[in-house]
Each structure stands twice: as structure tokens, then as C-alpha cells.
Nucleic acid binder design. Structure first.
Length: 422
RNA sequence: GGAGGAGUGGCCGAGCGGCCGAAGGCGGCGGUCUUGAAAACCGUUGAUGCGCAAGCGUCCGUGGGUUCGAAUCCUACCUCCUCCGCCA
């Protein structure tokens, strides 16, 4: 959520900066609602002040017959207050509803662009793998090795599900453990295992609601949502809390499955593990002081890159342009891993700084020192990494001409010493 | 699922329908004393909205209601605790 005061004073600038995300932005309604809110508020508060005064007087008066007139008048005043409060409630509901649909302001440093084509590549690591033979796709490899069964997953659940088997299931589990162990080394990140279902307030806090309900799996009774990323439950750990500034930054790492409807992706990535309704992810989440969040984003990105480097998987980093950053983000770096089967780089991690956008929605604040005023923290998160896509990358990059797959060295201890699948 | 009990400030804990944003304690902060620290003593210490400010408003789990006036009364919901049942 944007700062209403800032928005009020810089309406044109906000419109212009939001428009860099694409489309036209008209904040006229925000102005109108804000103005009527303030005028209703001041009228209601004046009456409340009067009522408080007169009621105190009535209270002090022993002989109530002397104040019958005041009591009658206050009855009217109270009626009027009730009307105004109701009007105010409606205006605030509209205003708040509107504010909740406005995306975050892109950072000044966020590159301008019209589409993902305009995302500048800022670094590369390793060389795209040269296999010396015709590479197979991970879905062919997986099926031939009998470690991924898409057909039966479809029978059990439906399309966009996978059944991992044998060394495939073991590889997924090995990756989760390897990632968690790596990130928690030296107490950099504290491991958490959060609920996989959350309520509406949590979804609103991180920005999935109210705009993106269609992308979420929902349970009617109780009114819960399956998490689309661990970002949601982990960021909401501190919703409506005031943190001690001395403890910042607070860094969490969480493994969770993630559930997404992929409603807008019909026909895209229908084969393979790339786009599933359910996938595993190890997520990094940080709560930082505002002045430190840029540096924390760099570190977060480096931590995510560290996993790919340890696995010796080639990748590049792109700086998402204004048209491509997510709703809640102010700045985002994507890590894209090389996939020989498809001969392209594919997103495997997305690392973002949300600044105070989520912390305003979720009311997550901190005190610099005892006695100072609460300020909003900056929240950040990034995949460290998407596990399913890491399996894809390993199968495709480590495949051999005979269709077997070499297990990356760092994973062997997690695979019971297995050096090769197949 | 059934039966009881409870939700007050960072924490514990008082609170008669008006003098309660809320006693008291702990903790925090500042000070006195001390070579320094502890102890003791004194003072101070919630959040938020509108406003340049003075100030005014709001917040005692959440939402409704009664009343001139609600932390205090009524009501629904939420959460927690105890007991019974069921259960990985």
C-alpha cells in the first residue's frame, strides 16, 4: 500500500511513476475520496468533542432535571454522529479498497521498459552447457529414467501435477535439505516451517489480495487460501507487530510447497515440471531497516546465486524492468538458469525489495531505539531456489548421452552417495 | 463435536456506566547517590487519525447494540485455557 500522505501531496508524480508499469493510471478517485474522508472526519470529530464535553457536564450534575434539555440535544447529536460515522465508514472502505489495488512504486533505479524483452541482463555465471549430443528435455529424461510420472499424476489429480518416484523423489528431497542447510549455515537465516494455508488478512498483507484471488486455491470452510509462496506466511509472521530495531535485519528461510492456479497461463509450459499447480520452494525472507534494504537485496541475490554455483549450474541475472516487476515489488532481480533441453535461460529465482509496501499493508514496524517512534520496516524475499525447476536444470544440464544423469557432487551426501541416476 | 472459564498498555495485573488512556507492579529510558556497578530513591514511559500548531478525535480481542455518556451492560463472532468425545 502506498503512503496516503505522500500520494496526496505528489499525485502527478505517483501517477507518472505507476504508469511506467504499463497502462494508464488515474488517481482522481483517490483524491475525491480522500477529500470527502477528511471533511466527514472533521465534522464528526467536532460533534464528538462537543458530546464528550456536555456528557461530562451531565455526569457532574447531581440533579438531572436541570440538564434535560442538554440530554435531549445530545440525543440528536449522537444520531448525527452515527450518520456521519456510517458515511465515513463507507468512504474509508472505498478509499482503502482503491489503495489496496494500487501497485508499488517502481524504484528510481528500476529500468524503464515495455515488456520482459526490456529486462537488462546484469551478469552471467558459467557458460551454457555444451553436451556434444542432442540434449533431451527433462520430461523425456524423467520418464525414461522412471523418476517422474506425469500420466499417473494426471489420473490422481489433474494436469499440471507430477509424481516423483525413486531417485526423482530423493533428488527433490536432497535439494530441499541442501538448500536449507546452506542458507542456515553460520546463522545467516533462521529456518521456519510455517502453515501452508493462510487467512485473508495474511494474503492482503503481502499483496496477493484483493487483486489476485483468481490465482489462488481457496478453501470455503474455513475461509483459507493455500499459499502460493512461503513469502505469505513468513512475511506475515510479524504482521501488526513493532520490532526492536536492534534485531534487524531478521532473516528467515522456509521450505514450503506452493500452490498456484496458473489461471492466466493456459497453454503455456504444459509439458514438464516448469509450471505446476503444486511445487516446492525454499524461500528467503528479510525484514530490514529502510537504509539497509538495498544492500540486503544484493546479499539475498548472492545467497540465491550461491546455490546454483554450488550445483555448478550456469545462469544469468536480469534486472526486471518497470513493466515486468510484480505488483508489490519496487525492484526485482531474476535469476535464470540455463536449460539445454530448451536452449534458453529460465527463471529459477526472483529476488525483490518491497520497501514499505507490504509492511504498510501488514503493519510491520520497528523502533530504532527505546522510546523512538515506530517506522515501517522494509521487507524482501527471494527464492533460494525453486526446487522443481532446479530438478529440471539438473536433469537437463547433467544428462549423459546414454540418458543417465550425473548427480552434482554437493548433492551426493544427500543422495546416500549416489553418483548417477540411471 | 459437547460442557465450562477467560481475553485490559512491552509483560503481569486492578478497574463502581460519568472524575479511566486506564491504579499498582515488572521492564525500558533519564536523573540522584557511587571511583564504577548493583541496591535504594526521584522522574518519565502506549498506538493511531486530522491539523502548521494549539488542540481535538479514536483505540481496553473483533463487529453490532443499549445510553446524554461504555473497558464497565446486552449480543454475535474470533482466540486461548480446562474437562469429555473423536483422531494423525
Amino acid at each position: 500500500m502506498l503512503n496516503l500522505k505522500f500520494l496526496r501531496d505528489n499525485l502527478d508524480e505517483v501517477e507518472r511513476r505507476l504508469a511506467t508499469r504499463g497502462g494508464v493510471v488515474d488517481l482522481g478517485d483517490v483524491r475525491t475520496l480522500d477529500e470527502s474522508r477528511r471533511s466527514l472526519l472533521s465534522e464528526a470529530e467536532t460533534l464528538k468533542a462537543e458530546r464528550n464535553q456536555v456528557s461530562a457536564l451531565i455526569g457532574k450534575t447531581k440533579d438531572k432535571s436541570q440538564v434535560q434539555g442538554e440530554i435531549a440535544r445530545m440525543k440528536d447529536v449522537s444520531g448525527r454522529i452515527k450518520e456521519l460515522d456510517e458515511e465515513l465508514r463507507q468512504v474509508e472502505e472505498s478509499l482503502n479498497g482503491l489503495l489496496l489495488t494500487l501497485p508499488n512504486l517502481p524504484d528510481a533505479k528500476c529500468p524503464l521498459g515495455q515488456s520482459e524483452e526490456d529486462n537488462p541482463e546484469i551478469s552471467t555465471w558459467g557458460e551454457p552447457t555444451k553436451l556434444g549430443f542432442e540434449p533431451q528435455s527433462h520430461w523425456d529424461l524423467g520418464e525414461k529414467l522412471d523418476i517422474i510420472d506425469f500420466e499417473r499424476a494426471t489420473k490422481i489429480a489433474g494436469s499440471r501435477f507430477a509424481l516423483l518416484k525413486g531417485a526423482g523423489a530423493r533428488l527433490e528431497r536432497a535439494l530441499i535439505n541442501f538448500m536449507l542447510d546452506t542458507h542456515t549455515q553460520g546463522d545467516k537465516y533462521t529456518e521456519v516451517l510455517p502453515p501452508f494455508m493462510v487467512n485473508r488478512a495474511s494474503m492482503t498483507g503481502t499483496g496477493q489480495l484483493p487483486k489476485f484471488e483468481d490465482d489462488l486455491f481457496h478453501l470455503d470452510d474455513p475461509d483459507f487460501f493455500l499459499i502460493p509462496t512461503a513469502e505469505v506466511p513468513v512475511t506475515n509472521i510479524y504482521r501488526e507487530e513493532i520490532l526492536d530495531g536492534a534485531q534487524l535485519p531478521i532473516c528467515f528461510v522456509a521450505y514450503t510447497p506452493c500452490f498456484r492456479k496458473e489461471a492466466g497461463a493456459h497453454g503455456r509450459d504444459t509439458r514438464g515440471l516448469i509450471r505446476q499447480h503444486q511445487f516446492n520452494k525454499v524461500e528467503l525472507v528479510k525484514f530490514a531497516r529502510p537504509e539497509e534494504s538495498d544492500a540486503e537485496l544484493d546479499q539475498l541475490l548472492a545467497d540465491a546465486e550461491g546455490i546454483l554455483q554450488a550445483l555448478k549450474l550456469p545462469y544469468r541475472v536480469v534486472d526486471l524492468c518497470t513493466a515486468d516487476i510484480g505488483f508489490s515489488a519496487a525492484r526485482t532481480f531474476d535469476i535464470e538458469v540455463w536449460l539445454p533441453g530448451q536452449q534458453l535461460y529460465r527463471e529459477i529465482s526472483s529476488c525483490s525489495n518491497f520497501r514499505d509496501f507490504q509492511s504498510r499493508r501488514a503493519s510491520i514496524r520497528f523502533r530504532r531505539e527505546a522510546g523512538s517512534k515506530p517506522e515501517f520496516v522494509h521487507t524482501l524475499n527471494g527464492s533460494g531456489l525453486a526446487v522443481g525447476r532446479t530438478v529440471v536444470a539438473i536433469l537437463e544440464n547433467y544428462q549423459q548421452e546414454d540418458g543417465s544423469v550425473v548427480v552434482p557432487e554437493v548433492l551426493r551426501p544427500y543422495m546416500g552417495g549416489m553418483e548417477k541416476i540411471g
